[in-house]
Amino acid sequence: MAAGFNLSPTAIAAGFRLETFAEIGSTNALALQRAAAGEADKLWLVTDHQTGGRGRRGRPWVGQKGNLAATLLIRPTVEINAAAALGFVAALALRDALDVVLPRDRVAIAPDGGDLANGGRFTLKWPNDVLANGAKLSGILLETSGVGTSDVAVAIGIGVNVVDHPSGTPYPATDLKEIGSPCSAGELFFALSDAFVDNLRLWRDGRDLSAVRDKWLRSAAGIGSQVAVDLGGRIVRGVFETIDADCHLVVREPDGRAIRIAAGDVHFGAVASVRDQ
Rank of each mutant, 00 (worst) to 15 (best):
R104G: 02
D198L: 13
A93K: 00
L43V: 08
W126C: 01
L188V: 00
I179Q: 11
D246A: 14
H165N: 15
I156W: 05
V212A: 01
G134P: 11
A97I: 05
V152H: 06
D255S: 13
K136R: 10
C183S: 13
A36R: 15
S273F: 14
R34Y: 15
P172C: 03
D214T: 04
D99T: 04
P127S: 04
C183D: 03
A11W: 08
R34H: 15
L68D: 04
I140E: 04
I12N: 10
D205H: 10
G264F: 03
G232N: 04
V212H: 03
P127Q: 02
T174W: 06
A35N: 14
E19V: 09
A35G: 13
D48G: 08
R121Y: 02
E187C: 08
G264K: 02
W44L: 12
R56M: 08
F21N: 10
S184Q: 10
F21C: 05
G232K: 03
G256M: 03
I24S: 04
R34E: 14
L202E: 01
I261R: 00
L137G: 04
V160H: 09
L45F: 06
A262G: 12
R104P: 01
T27S: 07
D99C: 02
A22K: 09
W126R: 02
N28M: 06
S26A: 08
A85I: 04
G63Y: 06
D41A: 08
L43H: 08
T51K: 08
V154E: 11
E23V: 07
S219K: 05
L200C: 15
G139D: 08
D41Y: 07
V227E: 01
D205T: 09
V130W: 00
E241M: 13
P111V: 07
V130G: 04
S138K: 11
A132H: 07
R237C: 06
W203F: 06
A221I: 06
V250I: 10
D96V: 00
I158W: 00
G180S: 03
H49R: 12
L209Q: 00
T71H: 09
W61C: 06
N161D: 09
L102D: 01
S210K: 13
D265G: 02
C247A: 09
D208S: 10
V236E: 12
R218Q: 12
G15Y: 12
D255W: 08
Q33Y: 11
F268W: 12
A93I: 00
R57I: 12
K42M: 08
V62P: 12
L217W: 07
S145Q: 13
G119I: 05
A70E: 00
A2P: 03
G38T: 13
Q33P: 05
D112C: 10
P103D: 02
S184E: 10
L131H: 11
I259N: 10
C247S: 10
R34P: 12
V212P: 01
A258N: 13
